[in-house]
């Protein structure tokens, strides 16, 4: 043994756990607060970190291809979801529908991110085209 480890939990361990929990709560609060606003929302689709399209929450279907994968996105008035993807992990499909601003669907293999944006950051420039 390089040095003998302590094998019974100590009060200092609780401190580490508390620090992790505090970090989780702080980050979680930050995301749920930013998602509190309501109003017109849209789904922002980014491929490889570059925004490619903003879809208002109305019935629409889109297909995005990147990195050899195809992701099928469905937008409804209630939210946005990935209903089909040919990636091996299927995490994006399992995420289900997201609707609150700040929520997102991530497809790591295809490097595609769908984020819900609120009315506040809906720029007029983005609607053009």
């Amino acid at each position: 043994m390089k040095h003998e480890p302590k094998l019974k939990p100590t009060g200092w361990d609780a401190l580490v756990a508390a620090a992790v929990l505090l970090l989780a709560l702080a980050l979680g609060a930050r995301f749920s607060l930013s998602g509190a606003q309501s109003g017109a929302r849209c789904a922002v689709v980014s491929v490889e970190g570059v925004e490619v399209e903003r879809l208002p929450f109305a019935d629409a279907e889109r297909e995005y291809q990147n990195n050899g994968y195809t992701v099928h996105v469905r937008v409804t008035p209630d939210g946005v979801r990935v209903d089909r993807a040919d990636c091996p992990t299927q995490d994006c499909v399992r995420t289900g529908t997201v609707s609150r601003p700040g929520q997102s669907i991530v497809c790591l293999p295809a490097r595609i991110v769908v984020t819900v944006a609120g009315a506040a950051d809906e720029g007029v420039d983005a609607v053009a085209g």
Binding site: F31, V106, L108
Partner: peptide, 23 residues
């Protein structure tokens, strides 16, 4: 790593849950 490859801060939203699970 996910934020780096995606070039997007979206994966950060998963971190609170992942941290809680890591306990």
């Amino acid at each position: 790593a996910a934020m780096l490859t995606l070039g997007n801060a979206a994966p950060l939203a998963y971190l609170p849950v992942l941290l809680a699970v890591s306990l």
